[in-house]
Write a protein that binds this DNA or RNA. Structure first.
Length: 935
RNA sequence: GGAUGGUUAGCUCAGUUGGUUAGAGCGCUACGUUGACAUCGUAGAGGUCAUUGGUUCGAAUCUGAUACCGUCCA
């Protein structure tokens, strides 16, 4: 069979993904195995795959594939989120392009368009995940507005309302004037802005309520928002502020509107800020609202839902024509107008530049208004009191956060939690199951009919006390127009994807819940993670997952966030086409430690592609040997892929060791290479186990990468490689293939396509790599591994010596080894000779004249060559090394000479220092002797 | 303003109870192509572990302060 020059990613990706799907490997049903469950953080139904998704889902796929290969029942559930505000915004935009205004449509018409949009674009992102190789159980694909899911959300709302955890009230909310809806605190993003601080003077009035004349001073306040002045109801100062204490209780006049308001005192005011006097506008600022409630002040709203001026609540003030001329003016234009008009009155003292922060809408970017509004809330304090495990489970690691530092953020948020505003003035989403009669009385019920029943029974109770309730008819009943916050549906995700709410106690829900691991961004720890935990305890009395792996944010090379405006987010599908999915997965994982932001750099993808190439070439090399197998019988090659009959084992120092783990099968001269690599594999498998346990995935990938590239390709394959067109022992060939298979197995979770392709090309496989099972790891033989390290060290040092003496790789040499333990070199002699191109290796007891001397540990190596040698560089190297060793010895001696060290340090540490001392002394002696032979 | 994390090689980052001469990848330098691979090989250079006190026989690691950067919250 002819292999292509390079790995062709596109072909393998389509071929194997299709194959895995056909075999149903990704599908999971409950059985006797231990489940390993991940629910995908559902992307927005209309979204497209970006780098963040790529990172997130690659991680999930790695975990789920590894679990599958560990014999667990791996289940990864896909799905999408209806993302009410984001999707509705997209639909509104689409309609506008078609010349249709949302306001011209009925709710039903609008929703028809929205569903049409969802059917058309929804799920594109799920198709893209397939390109990435994600092994999701597609038969379980869920959507937060599926019929059952919708019903579950409604059920939970009604349930929480009945438990008294949901209330409706007029509160300050974050109002997005662009989408004209309330937002939760978490949906508000604070941004630094350059603004102005206006110093506005309010004049005093006398007892007769007439403004004091020119001589009468006023009180000056500093505000960034003069447009809200017409809603002012008081001026507030700090009670101990000497500048103002005599003014407390006096009255001033609000400019333009001429409302008479009091000067009050409250410790909330910061005397150092501005003038130390604060204007109170309870309708337009959260803190002012709080003060307003405390001091019994009225809230006067002067902005409508779109952020334009309204005089509706100003009628008591007999608004002037000037005031009425503001009606309909946008808040930012209004700011200028009012500032100008007050300045015209001579009541603006000064205007300063000011760096402040404003809240903006996460979705629309619009500046948020604090607005009094009638909304639905969850009483979080009470909810948490009832479900105290929400915090406890994270603190005691029954839900383990990775990295653990996220625990602090979580704790801080929970301890300062505010009520959650769950109603949104949108149409796309679960409509709130609250119903109103003609008088505006409210009941909560799943259907209109149930609501009607509730009204009837409510009335029968109330009518015994009051008699003026008109009878209710079913046609009078209207459902609340608003929908629920998207997160009010996604907090049920780990339960409801298994129908745990709509069909409690079903087999799937019982088996898969709690899920195993959640992989998500740190940015939604409050939006989503915390709330899933709350819902989990409220409805299942169990946490939704055991581990949470937080990914960082994907940034560009310069550390900037990826954004559409900057145009710095790469086209992921383009990258997959260019480099292959495996290379993309490699690139994003190799630079991505848990919880840290990731600087995305295309060069990491190149590294991934190069790794593909390396793997492919290793395959080509091994396949080249396939037809050249033979066995050595009585010094003659017997060709053919038959089992070797030679059972004699050449001398190896390890055959005398008492170590049951060593494989004693008959691999003549390559025994050491094979034993060494087998143990290296064992060692790495144990490391990997730890790294996975701690979610150090980036490190795990690097570990496998280095095992394959360095240990397998650079060392092992070179050691067993037969000479040009020479045969290879069948047993060695088979062992090599099985090593390679095992490497592919270890790498598979990270790079699924190329590993499956290579695995299948290596052998006729009875089982696909995707579902093959890991063998249990064994403890490696440390002495053997050390022997391997020594061999590598000797080879490198001798190559370096050759390099420095300008010995061309092709010029062969004779090597003399002066050592106290020749046995240690017998098993690696062949390898050594081949790797440094030595025609022969001999042992010696004395220095060999006219040679290059290399001192390694306690041994000396003499390189003899026909070429004339220049020993100056060699000498310099030795002198440099000698100095280094002497310095080191000094520091060790100093330590050992320190009585307090000897008294206090642990015995093993002292032992180590002693060993360092003897080793270094021996080494110094070796170097000195080597230098002597050069002189 | 509050909380919280960080500062280690040119860049991106490891460094798990304090204990060899602090590691990796990329980049860089030198040399090397007729059979696995130039998407490569061999070898090498490169760090006062932000600064500054303290604890300790011993500090990148523990601790105080300072400087700078980041994140979350208001």
């Amino acid at each position: 069979m002819e292999l292509s020059k390079n790995f062709i990613a596109a072909e393998a990706e389509v071929k194997w993904y299709q194959h895995w799907l056909e075999k149903g490997y990704f599908n999971s049903t409950p059985d006797e195995r231990e489940p390993y469950t991940i629910v995908i953080p559902p992307p927005n139904v209309t979204g497209v795959l970006h780098m963040g998704h790529c990172l997130n889902n690659t991680i999930q796929d790695i975990l789920i594939r590894r679990a599958r290969m560990q014999g667990k029942n791996a289940c990864w559930v896909p799905g999408t989120d209806h993302a009410s505000i984001a999707t509705e915004a997209k639909v509104v935009h689409m309609l506008r392009e078609r010349g249709i205004a949302k306001s011209s449509l009925t709710r039903e018409e609008f929703l028809a368009y929205a569903w049409e949009w969802k059917e058309k674009y929804g799920g594109i992102i799920l198709q893209q995940l397939k390109k990435l190789g994600c092994s999701l159980d597609w038969s379980r694909t869920s959507f937060t507005m599926d019929e059952d899911y919708y019903k579950s959300v409604i059920k939970v709302f009604i349930d929480l309302h009945e438990k008294g955890l949901i209330y409706r009230g007029k509160r300050m909310v974050n109002w997005d004037p662009a989408s004209q809806t309330a937002l939760s605190d978490e949906e508000v993003i604070f941004k630094d802005v350059d603004s102005k601080l206006y110093y506005v003077t309010y004049k005093f009035v006398d007892a007769a309520n007439t403004p004091l004349g020119d001589g009468g001073k006023g009180i000056t306040v500093a505000t960034t928002r003069p447009e809200t002045i017409l809603g002012d109801v008081a001026i507030c100062v700090h009670p101990t502020d000497e500048r103002y204490s005599h003014l407390i209780g006096k009255k001033v006049i609000v400019p333009i509107i001429n409302r008479k308001i009091p000067i009050i005192a409250d410790e909330y005011v910061t005397p150092e800020f501005g003038t130390g006097a604060l204007k109170i506008t309870p309708a337009h600022d959260k803190n002012d609202n709080m003060l307003g409630i405390k001091h019994g002040l009225k809230a006067i709203d002067t902005l409508d839902v779109t952020g334009r001026f309204t005089a509706a609540e100003l009628m008591d003030d007999n608004p002037s024509e000037l005031v009425l001329s503001y009606v309909g003016v946008d808040r930012f234009e209004l700011r200028k107008k009012i500032a100008d008009d007050i300045a015209a009155l001579g009541q603006i003292e000064k205007i300063e530049d000011y760096k402040g922060q404003i809240g903006t809408s996460e979705r629309t970017g619009a500046v948020i208004e604090s607005k009094l509004s009638l909304q639905w809330f969850i009483d979080m304090q009470q909810f948490l009191q009832k479900n105290s495990e929400t915090l406890q489970a994270v603190l005691d690691d029954s839900i383990a956060f990775h990295p653990a530092k996220a625990k602090n953020t979580y704790k801080h948020w929970l301890e300062n939690i505010k009520d959650w505003c769950i109603s949104r003035q949108l149409w796309w989403g679960q409509q709130i199951p609250a119903w109103y009669d003609a008088e505006g009385n409210c009941v909560v019920a799943a259907t209109k009919e149930e609501a009607f029943e509730k009204f009837i029974s409510q009335r029968s109770i109330l009518d015994t006390q009051t008699t003026h309730f008109p009878p209710v008819t079913i046609d009078d009943i209207r459902q609340d127009e608003d929908v629920l916050d998207t997160w009010f549906s996604s907090w049920l995700w780990p339960m409801e994807v298994f129908k745990g709410i709509s069909n409690p106690g079903n087999k799937d829900a019982e088996y898969y819940y709690p899920t195993t691991t959640l992989v998500t961004g740190q940015d939604i720890i409050f939006f989503w993670v915390a709330r899933m935990i709350m819902a989990g305890y409220e409805y299942k009395n169990l946490p939704p997952f055991k581990d949470v792996y937080f990914t960082g944010m994907v940034r560009d090379k310069q550390g900037r966030k990826m954004s559409k405006q900057l145009g710095n987010s790469p086209d992921l599908l383009g990258l997959i086409d260019q480099y292959g999915a495996d290379a993309v997965r490699f690139g994003i994982m190799v630079s991505s430690p848990a919880g840290n932001d990731l600087m995305f750099d295309e060069s990491a993808l190149e590294q991934g592609r190069n790794f593909n190439n390396k793997l492919w070439n290793a395959l080509k090399l091994i396949k080249m040997w396939e037809g050249r197998q033979g066995s050595m019988v009585n010094g003659e090659w017997s060709m053919g892929a038959s089992e070797s009959t030679d059972t004699s084992i050449p001398y190896s120092p390890f055959t005398t060791q008492k170590d049951a783990d060593i494989d004693h099968s008959p691999f003549t001269i390559h025994k050491f290479a094979i034993d060494w690599f087998a143990n290296k594999l064992d060692e790495v498998k144990i490391n990997l186990e730890h790294q996975f346990k701690d979610f150090r995935l980036s490190e795990a990938l690097k570990t496998v990468y280095s095992l394959i590239w360095d240990d397998f390709c650079s060392w092992y394959l070179e050691w067993v490689k037969p000479g040009f067109e020479q045969p290879i022992e069948t047993a060695v060939y088979k062992k090599t293939v099985s090593f390679f298979e095992e490497l592919m197995q270890l790498l598979h979770p990270f790079m699924p396509f190329i590993t499956e392709e290579i695995y299948q090309l290596l052998n006729d496989q009875s089982i696909d790599l995707c579902v093959s099972q890991y063998a249990k790891e064994k403890l490696p033989n440390k002495a053997l591994l050390q022997q391997g390290e020594l061999l590598k060290q000797v080879i490198s040092a001798l190559r370096d010596a050759r390099n420095k003496n300008q010995l061309k790789p092709k010029e062969s040499i004779t090597l003399y080894i002066e050592t106290a333990v020749p046995a240690a070199f017998l098993s690696i002699e062949n390898i050594l000779a081949k790797q440094i191109n030595a025609a022969s290796i001999q042992f010696t007891n004395a220095a060999v004249a006219n040679t290059i001397v290399v001192a390694i540990e306690k041994d000396k190596f003499y390189i003899e060559s026909e070429k004339q040698l220049d020993t100056t560089t060699l000498k310099n190297d030795l002198l440099k090394d000698l100095e280094h060793q002497q310095n080191f010895l000094q520091s060790v001696m100093k330590k050992l000479g320190n009585e307090r060290f000897v008294q206090n340090a642990k015995p093993e540490v002292i032992e180590l220092e002693e060993k360092k001392k003897t080793d270094t002394e021996a080494r110094i002696q070796t170097i000195e002797e080597s230098l002597a032979t050069l002189n």
